[in-house]
Design a protein around this nucleic acid. Sequence first.
DNA 1: CTCAATAATTCCGTTATATGAAATTTATTG
DNA 2: CAATAAATTTCATATAACGGAATTATTGAG
Lengths: 269, 269
Amino acid sequence: MIDSAEPQSSLRRALGLLRLVGAAEAGGIRLKDLAEQAGCSQPTAHRALQDLAAEGFVEQIGKRYRLALDFFVLAARAGHADGLRDLAKPVLLRLSATLTDTIFLLVRNGYEAVCLDRIEGPFPIRSFTGDIGGKVPLGLGQGSLAILAHLPEAEREAVIRFNVPRLLDRGFLDEAGLRVELEKAREQGWVNLNTGLIPGMAGLGVPVFDAQGRAVAALSVGTLADRLRPERLPGVVAILKAEAATLGAMLNPFDTALRHPSRSLSSVA
Amino acid sequence: MIDSAEPQSSLRRALGLLRLVGAAEAGGIRLKDLAEQAGCSQPTAHRALQDLAAEGFVEQIGKRYRLALDFFVLAARAGHADGLRDLAKPVLLRLSATLTDTIFLLVRNGYEAVCLDRIEGPFPIRSFTGDIGGKVPLGLGQGSLAILAHLPEAEREAVIRFNVPRLLDRGFLDEAGLRVELEKAREQGWVNLNTGLIPGMAGLGVPVFDAQGRAVAALSVGTLADRLRPERLPGVVAILKAEAATLGAMLNPFDTALRHPSRSLSSVA
DNA sequence: CTCAATAATTCCGTTATATGAAATTTATTG
DNA sequence: CAATAAATTTCATATAACGGAATTATTGAG
């Protein structure tokens, strides 16, 4: 309803509906509300939803629409987009095995960091990003901060401008505090904050740089504050940084592949 | 190209394109090939892709289109459909902590089982379903078999009819072998196969029943064959079955909630 | 570096189909 | 079991989706 620019094409409208279905509570959403929120007539919404359902993107349980599992399956492939998730899998597994803590792989996506993968440690960790597919504003959480800190200055400033209000909203750092943390992160090359969701929890994040030296992702660890005390911290930092470097190095060849893509694409099943 | 029924609406066509983008190799797919595979003109594909990109469902890297991360983020919510994933999280965490093996949560989706969640154990497991969002024909893999075995007869037969060719394709059980396994699974209430992807790996699956007693999901464990030898196996079975029962019981109340949904839905942000 | 060749994008007249009002059926609620 | 509200269907209309053809950009070869 806050939308100003009305999408003009039927496709845009339908995708908006799809988004609304995704945003709905777990129980699903009714046609009436959908039409209202989308600002279109009920018949229009109805037809779009029928098509969406026919293609397996939404399902209709009784009178309520929700995202279908097929959609989930299709979208899981989006994470594979640049192969990062597959490349990072062994890295995450190694980290998980070595540190026995919860490990996160975050990627930058505009003003946010998205959790691309996560391996659970023995302690249940509540992170800002939540589960796989979750996102946070850049600047909130260790990995997210690590990415932001190492962005090119102009870009970083743009993100800060955009995100500071959102961070305040969520009751965390104000701009001054954020800048202090960013400065520290840039100096150290890693982020260690104890301002987790739960007292006693802590985390550590390091940036991952691609071939062009841009901070495109982050590896991070979530654990008990106890497990990041001075005697263990440096070791964890070293391990994380090493794996981040490994991952960054693997980003190289693939990026090259993108510039000179194989033409095996035409033979898709 | 095998399609017979041409979708009549522009929306169906566009969703088909989206699906093709998802099916494309990691490097993305070009407009030309997309149009060709979808059986529509290039301008049509182009316009649809522009809209898809504008809504954040696909992204254009150079001349190639791929699924966007926004899409991934949106779809993460699809797994929450009936709240199963959230409900199961503590169950998976407990299992992971108790067994220190890789734990899978599978849900039935038509003729397939979809991996809704997965917690990594210390040994890297290659499963049929692969990662979260992966799917397998019902009947392939322990959890998948567990679900199939406990479906109502008519439904089970329908699935078998449909899936046997696909199982053969993938070089696994023929119909006779499958039926033997199903019979055993039904008698035991659990599935233990050593026909994993890698020799030396094994798995164990148990069905999860909803309030109506239908096998809607499965919990399974993937580990080293060594760790499922007779002295440990019964314990693991007992633990898995207990957690499956717990999870099944939790399915109850929510199902009720679906029948009498709260009207808090109208207040979606 | 220049010149094909191929793909991406834009234009445009035509037509298919997306649209909302109104009517009809189906569910929900008091 | 009414009475109300939501979901669907119908239908005449207008829109925006369509593909052929033209244009521009990209890629590859000589």
